[in-house]
Simulated scan of single mutants.
Amino acid sequence: MPVVIVLAAGRGTRFRASGGTGSKLQADLYGKPVLTHVLAAVERSGLAVHVVHRACGDGMSDSIAEGVRATPTASGWLVLPGDLPLVSGESISRVAAALAHNPVVVPVFEGRKGHPVGFGRVCFEELAALSGEAGAVSVVRRHQAEGRVLQLKVDDAGILTDIDTLEDLQRLRGLVDVHGDRL
């Protein structure tokens, strides 16, 4: 069964530079920390989760590699940044299900690629060796060049709705609860 790797090791420098205080993942959104919304979506998906709070290196790639190495028996991995509080459990489940027939799955909403990006077991060595800031872009590109990436259409703007700045957080706070149990 795939494991969802939630990336929560970032420094949040853009958030603080925009006037935010503390960690964006601990910022209040509808009475709960942002990260709590993400973890609730993973729980609704029924998948196991591994949260990377600290990585050996400074970049997103380091966090992904750490999460993959910590879950070496998983059948695959869904990489989900901890700052996407509106992502749905259904989207997570659909990406995981698509991994049964595809080595890499990228969810797409209205033509835009989002998260979580799913990677099959065949990607273990590549993911475990990642380092730096680029995330797993190199793995996706390699499989894309081989025609082995599924772009999975989902009806979920939450795969794109991240919080990088205080303005992003305030925009989400201003939304009317039209997302059901996601908030």
Rank of each mutant, 00 (worst) to 15 (best):
I159E: 01
R141N: 13
A74D: 08
G114T: 06
S23N: 14
G67R: 10
Q151S: 07
V149S: 09
L47P: 10
R54F: 07
E110Y: 04
C123F: 10
K113F: 01
S91T: 15
V139I: 03
G46Q: 04
G10C: 05
T165L: 03
S88C: 05
H101G: 10
R14F: 01
P81K: 06
K24S: 05
P103W: 00
S23M: 11
D181H: 08
V176C: 03
S131T: 13
R121W: 07
L35A: 08
A100H: 13
K24P: 14
L39M: 12
V34R: 03
S23H: 10
P33C: 00
R16S: 12
E167P: 02
L152T: 07
H143T: 03
M1E: 13
Q170K: 11
L25C: 01
L80S: 10
R171C: 05
R54H: 13
G57A: 02
G132N: 09
V108W: 06
S63Q: 13
G46I: 09
R171T: 14
H115V: 14
E126T: 02
P107E: 05
G89W: 12
S93G: 14
V6D: 03
G120K: 03
M1N: 09
H50L: 04
H115C: 12
L39S: 02
I159G: 01
L183N: 11
H101S: 15
